[in-house]
């Protein structure tokens, strides 16, 4: 599931790219999983098909997905993030939820820590 936020500073194509990248690297989307067609995703998200096509093109350029004429867009194998790092992220999310922190709070803390 991906969600677009109209008030988010980055545009819809970037939001789609970032969320699908995260889903692939976290293993939520597995190798050879098929992504919805550009038209389906664009219709469901109420955006132009070109915006979704742009996001898919960027994912393809990054080597995360491949597009075949008959097969649609599928996830490439070997894109899972290093497992220990993923475990740490999941642990952080669980701890933040237990502490009652919001996603924005956690993202802010991560950004500060990242830049420190």
């Amino acid at each position: 599931m991906i969600t677009l936020d109209a008030s988010h500073p980055s545009g819809p194509a970037e939001q789609i790219r970032a969320q699908i990248t995260a889903l692939i690297q976290s293993g939520e989307l597995e190798a050879d999983d098929r992504l919805p067609s550009v038209r389906q995703l664009a219709g469901d998200l109420r955006i132009a098909a070109g915006t979704v096509a742009k996001a898919y093109k960027e994912l393809e350029a990054a080597g995360l997905v491949r597009t075949g004429r008959a097969n649609g867009t599928r996830v490439n194998p070997g894109q899972l993030l290093d497992a220990p790092a993923l475990r740490e992220v999941r642990r952080l999310v669980a701890a933040a939820r237990n502490a009652g922190m919001s996603l924005d709070d956690v993202q802010g803390i991560v950004a500060v820590t990242w830049n420190a």
Partner: peptide, 12 residues
Amino acid sequence: LSLHTSAELTPR
């Protein structure tokens, strides 16, 4: 809902 739109990633 006017601010947020969601879509599943399962092809129909």
